[in-house]
Each structure stands twice: as structure tokens, then as C-alpha cells.
């Protein structure tokens, strides 16, 4: 159960992020080395405006978080383990994609996400994921002119023509 209190903390984090992003943009813009040009408006005006907007909005979100109306005022149930599993699955795919190749890394991602959603049939999920990733691979690398990495399966797969 995520209560109003932790949601207010969440809102505060949002406010701090927006504020931080604004300060970061303003600072980076200030430090930007700009070649002297004759244009009326250089590349720094818009970043300054957007940075200033974010700073003001960050403060307003923080105000709303502590004194105003927040989202899901009645609280909202969030189940965190599946979120963690899916996020980890995506990281795993990033690390493995170019080593193992699209088919294996994609099949693995499919299995992990299905598991996170509570699917009980791990082997069936894995098989389905491999078939789906394999179909995408064939369609992309042979049908369309796009390249998904073959990885360690490269010796088994005919080079795209």
C-alpha cells in the first residue's frame, strides 16, 4: 500500500528533479562557450528560458506536494517486485544484445517480462519469446534492409543478402 505520505514524498522527488534539471540547464548554459556571432539571438536564450521555467515549476510542484492536492489522494497500491524484475530484464538485454545476438537476448527479455507479470509457464514463455524474436530477426534482416545483431548464432544464420 502506497499511502498519501509516500505519495507526497514521490511528488517532492518530482519537484526536486524538475528544479534540479532547471538549475542544471541554467548552469550548463552559463558555462557554454559560444562563438561570437552577429545573430540577434544566440543559442543560449531558449535554454535560459526553459531552465528558468523548470526552476519555477519545480518550486510550484514542491508547494503542491506539501500543501496542495496530490494524485491518488486516497492512496494507490503498487507492487514493486515486478517493476524491479522488468527493469533488470531490460538492463540484461542491453548487456547481452550484441554478445548473444537479438534472438537469444530478445527471447530472454520476453521470458523475464512474462514471468514478472506472473506467468507460471517459464519454458513455454521462453519458447514463444525465441520464436517471436526469431520471426522479427528474419523479417528485419532478410525482408527489410535493417540489421539486428546475429551474435553467437551468426554461424547458423545465412548472411543477409
Amino acid at each position: 500500500m502506497t499511502t498519501g505520505r509516500s505519495l507526497r514524498i514521490g511528488e517532492s522527488v518530482l519537484g526536486l528533479c524538475v528544479l534540479g534539471l532547471g538549475l542544471f540547464i541554467a548552469l550548463q548554459t552559463f558555462r557554454m562557450k559560444v562563438a561570437p556571432i552577429h545573430a540577434a539571438v544566440g543559442p543560449r536564450l531558449f535554454p535560459y528560458l526553459i531552465g528558468a521555467g523548470l526552476i519555477v515549476l519545480g518550486i510550484l510542484v514542491l508547494r503542491e506536494a506539501w500543501f496542495g492536492r496530490i494524485a491518488h489522494a486516497e492512496g494507490v497500491e503498487l507492487d514493486w517486485p515486478p517493476v524491479g524484475i522488468i527493469a533488470a530484464g531490460l538492463v540484461l538485454q542491453m548487456l547481452l544484445l550484441e554478445r548473444l545476438g537479438w534472438i537469444l537476448a530478445g527471447g530472454l527479455l520476453f521470458m523475464v517480462v512474462a514471468r514478472a507479470f506472473g506467468s507460471p509457464r517459464v519454458h513455454l514463455d521462453a519458447a514463444l519469446g525465441l520464436v517471436l524474436a526469431g520471426l522479427i530477426f528474419v523479417l528485419f534482416n532478410y525482408g527489410l534492409d535493417l540489421r539486428l545483431p546475429a551474435g553467437i548464432l551468426a554461424p547458423l544464420l545465412a548472411p543477409a543478402g
Partner: peptide, 11 residues
Amino acid sequence: PKPWLYAGILL
């Protein structure tokens, strides 16, 4: 099934 739908979406 929902697990397959969302696994497919992420793929």
C-alpha cells in the same frame, strides 16, 4: 494472456 501481451510490447 497479459504476460505475453506486455512481454511482446517490450520486445
